[in-house]
Nucleic acid binder design. Sequence first.
DNA 1: CTGAAAGCGCTTACAG
DNA 2: CTGAAAGCGCTTACAG
Lengths: 344, 344
Amino acid sequence: MTIETPRGAMPWSPTLEEVAALAGVSSSTASRVINGSPRVTEQTVARVNEAIAKIGYVPNRAARNLARRRTQTVAMVIPERTADFFADPYFAEVIQGAAMHASSTDYSLTLLIESEKDPHKTQQYLRRGNVDGALVLSHHSASSSYGELARTLPIVFGVRPPGVFGDQIHVVDVDNVAVGALGTAHLIERGRRRVATITGPLDTSAGRERMEGWRDTLVAAGLEPGGCEEGDYTPTGGARAMRRLLDAGEPFDAVFIASAQMASGAVTVLKERAVRIPEEVAIATADNNVFSTSPSPALTTVDLHTEQKGAMMMATIVRLISGEQIGAETLVPIDLIERESTAV
Amino acid sequence: MTIETPRGAMPWSPTLEEVAALAGVSSSTASRVINGSPRVTEQTVARVNEAIAKIGYVPNRAARNLARRRTQTVAMVIPERTADFFADPYFAEVIQGAAMHASSTDYSLTLLIESEKDPHKTQQYLRRGNVDGALVLSHHSASSSYGELARTLPIVFGVRPPGVFGDQIHVVDVDNVAVGALGTAHLIERGRRRVATITGPLDTSAGRERMEGWRDTLVAAGLEPGGCEEGDYTPTGGARAMRRLLDAGEPFDAVFIASAQMASGAVTVLKERAVRIPEEVAIATADNNVFSTSPSPALTTVDLHTEQKGAMMMATIVRLISGEQIGAETLVPIDLIERESTAV
DNA sequence: CTGAAAGCGCTTACAG
DNA sequence: CTGAAAGCGCTTACAG
């Protein structure tokens, strides 16, 4: 058996006119019921819906978009793969969440990789009316240039872009200070008194804010902040930071590590040095993914609900596109998940 | 400053008629040069292109698609997130590769999550003319139902779907037998004589084939295959399999582990039991990602070129859509990357 | 090689 | 509440 429609053509599909004919109304009316217009009789609605069901009608997107002057598409802008960095399940989770939410809307999600060497290309694409809105997940300096774009195109950021922006900026993210605070507070509750930290990159606001949460919580508890080393969100970066912490000679009985991927590297080093977890050093981290569940002992972590974040980003952009007024910041909830690394 | 176009409308954008006017030709002709028709004078081509450049014309996708009866969209079908499983960088890499390649074509990539509880919904979507083709990455039993769909819609599979299919099936994948063979052969070359294996799920062809490659290579070398335990592609699954291997009491001096994610779990167990890598047990695995680079020692691995695979899938579907005749199978190249886990 | 015209399948004022 | 008509911005036979 072969494909019976001409190559490149869509398989035959019923048209609006056909449902209209079957329902005994004009296509204008059929269109109205499809679009949920209130100016139609219940009876007509029923007849049209019946016809739709009977012949399995599904609107032609291109025609609809052309008529509406919309694309019904939103772009998800993600950074080009950067070795270990992209390996972080974070992106996959956000994307998954956004895609799942998209499937419950009229929008389709298209993936846009922001090329390192030609970031301009992506913005061109966005600027040229290819999409009704964009979700941006890149967080390197380039994203500051989105400030301008955001004036003409609805944009939702997954991380706070660097630089100051007006109200036109919309961010969907966790409260990173709270993330650091929650993990650290738990460590204190478990009786730890010398809490060190391994931070994310300090040139990102997320990196700085989680560190701030760690420090503030210790200070508020009347404790002296322990050692502090910067990591880069990779396992090897986490391992290196842990070595520096250990080699500094300053004793500590707990560490808050800003990401699970770094934590998994740090755990390796602790084991190499025969430091017992949690007896000698308790660990709390952030990200509830394979990097916090698979080390042994499993790691206590702040669940960032990353998949939900993706869904929230999608929901937000849809509201934005339809003209709703939305606050500059939407907070993604966080939760502490206790596991063996802080047990007793 | 606010968004100046009416909400929901696309920003004003030049139209074909305008470039035609500017170039002093009809829009038919303008359209022809845009679409690279050979039936146009060089001179006209130049004039039209000039006009296009001058006013920054970019074709309206909806209008073009409506006229062509195409969608210029291909769907990437991925399984719904399944805990650790989705954490595998594999998906992210394939998606990244496909999206990057897509950006160099006229097609846009849209993400479709295949819901566990309602796999039918995805197929409905595909069947209804929403896309010109699909890339499918799911590999659970459900995918067998794609056999039918593949008769009416160009589909490229990233893994061989279960069941027998005709020539209408197109698969882009590595040669999994070769993957197992390459890793195992390297272990033998390094002087190992008792090579065990941790396989992928044996209800997948990839799982079985890599095991087959391992076994065949040993037999061909005149060696007795060592222990064989089944894993599930997760770190914890790999850890459990390694424990079983160790507990079985059958000695081995090397293991071929079918995925890096499993290998990272297995390495943890080896360390717990104070087994030295590579001195006592050498390890070779598959997947060149964070799970093979970040354990210490770093793991020798078969690079599956997963990102390239994504690009190849995209390239293949484009050719398929345009009616090219393509073989049932496209092989993604593989390479061995030597690292410390098999050094000396 | 080029143009006038029809058509792709919807939506949406405009009348009634 | 409903319909006839125009229009969304392209592509593509059909003539010439």
